[in-house]
C-alpha cells in the first residue's frame, strides 16, 4: 500500500502532505495525557504490521491495521500513522520520505472514516452481534477504502482508475478478511478488559 518515491507528481505529493498536515493537526489537538501510551502501542502495532506479509495473490501485500487504529484513536490515527510510516520509510525503505504525506492520507483517512461509520457500534452498550459486525466492518472497510484511495492517487497521476483500484482491492481481499477478524477480536478483547478505551471520545 506504500507508494514509492518518484511515482507521483509533485502536485499530488504536496496536496497529500497538506491534507495530512490538517489531519495531524486535528489529531494532535485532541490528545490527552492518558491516551499517549495507547497511541504509542497502537503506533508500534501499525509499525510492525506491515512486516506481516500475506503470501496470497499475485502481488506483495501485508497487514495495515488502520481499522483498529481508527476505531480506538479517531483523528489521532493521523499522527500515529504518520509516525509509523516515517519509521517504516527510514528503517525499512517502505514508501519514501517524499511520499509520506500522501501515504499517511491514504491510510489514515479511511481509519477516521471507519471511526465515524462504525464507531457507534463498537461500544460496550451495544449488543454482542452488532459489536462484532461493526468491528469487523471497520477493519475490513479501512483496508478497502485505503485501496480505493491509493488507486485514486495513481489515477490523479495519470493511470486509469478502475484497473488500478480493482487490482489493489483484489490483491487486498485476503488482508481485508484477516483485518476484519483481527479488529473484531481485538475489539472484543478490549471490551472485556478495557471498555473505556472504546467509549471515551466519540464525535
Amino acid at each position: 500500500m506504500h507508494i514509492s518515491e518518484g511515482v507521483l507528481s509533485p502536485a499530488i505529493l504536496t496536496g497529500g502532505a497538506a491534507l495530512t498536515a490538517i489531519g495531524v493537526g486535528i489529531g494532535l489537538k485532541s490528545i490527552d495525557y492518558e491516551e499517549i501510551p495507547y497511541m504509542g502501542i497502537l503506533t508500534a502495532g501499525f509499525f510492525v504490521a506491515s512486516l506481516i506479509h500475506l503470501p496470497i495473490g499475485p502481488a506483495s501485500v501485508h497487514l495495515i491495521l488502520n481499522g483498529i487504529l481508527g476505531l480506538i484513536l479517531g483523528w489521532k490515527a493521523f499522527p500515529a500513522i504518520l509516525v509509523g510510516l516515517t519509521l517504516q520509510a527510514l528503517l525499512f525503505q517502505f514508501g519514501g520520505i517524499t511520499t509520506l504525506g500522501i501515504n499517511t492520507l491514504n491510510m489514515a483517512l479511511p481509519a477516521v472514516t471507519c471511526y465515524y461509520l462504525f464507531g457507534w457500534g463498537v461500544k460496550k452498550s451495544s449488543g454482542r452481534l452488532i459489536f462484532i459486525i461493526t468491528a469487523f466492518a471497520a477493519g475490513c472497510c479501512a483496508v478497502l477504502f485505503a485501496g480505493i484511495l491509493v488507486g485514486f492517487s495513481l489515477y490523479l497521476n495519470g493511470d486509469a482508475f478502475l484497473p488500478a483500484a480493482k487490482l489493489l482491492v483484489a490483491a487486498h481481499l485476503p488482508v481485508m478478511l484477516i483485518e476484519g477478524i483481527l479488529t473484531a477480536t481485538c475489539a472484543l478483547f478490549l471490551r472485556k478488559v478495557k471498555p473505556e478505551l472504546l467509549e471515551s471520545y466519540y464525535g
Binding site: H2, G45, A49, L51, I52, L54, V61, F94, V193
Partner: peptide, 29 residues
C-alpha cells in the same frame, strides 16, 4: 487494573507478530 492489563495487551501483540511473521517480509521492491 490498567497497569496489569496494558503489558498483557502489548505482549500478546508482539507474540502475535512474531508467530505470524514467519513467511516473509514484504513491501519494498
Amino acid at each position: 487494573d490498567d497497569f496489569k492489563l496494558r503489558p498483557v495487551f502489548l505482549f500478546s501483540l508482539i507474540i502475535f507478530v512474531i508467530l505470524f511473521d514467519m513467511p516473509a517480509f514484504a513491501h519494498k521492491v
